[in-house]
Amino acid sequence: MRPYVIGGACDRVRRWVDAAMIEGELSLPAALAAHVVRCPHCSAEVREVETLLQRLRSLPASLDLSPVPAAVDRVLQATAASLTASHGAAFAGEPATAAASPKRRREPQWRWVLRQVAAVAAVILIAAGGLTLVSFGIHGAVKGSEPGRIVERWISPLRDWTQALFENVR
């Protein structure tokens, strides 16, 4: 575990290292560089980050680019073919209509959002209408009918108790 005081040299080095991990470059001020030379913790950390940055920068240059010209050629040939075959030609594996209408644009986002809102509103309306119809049906079925004997047996003590309770209040 690295021992350091907040605001001390090691802490400042750590902040520079943190910044370097974002900026991609580590260039310490002279005072901190001198500290890094003396401090084993800081020197190890700085070396590690510098090595990583250097490896990241040199990796792309070390990649072999031999597949690139072939890929570029294939793309350019496909684009040329789509033009020479003018209005009917197609990209490889694409339907003719797709290539024949290169000015096809994506649908505007606001229209998509509007359609979603309309769909949700329609679903809510249908659900509310259905529930209202069901409620009317239930109301119509129970209107004017007496509760059954079993219901009356359970409800009557409660009704008596409520009436007794509010009799004194009146």
Partner: peptide, 20 residues
Amino acid sequence: PHDAADALQEAGLKAFRYFD
């Protein structure tokens, strides 16, 4: 590298289609 070459080609075709 193989997938990268495929992706480059696919991206090129897509880019041309929407170049407008």
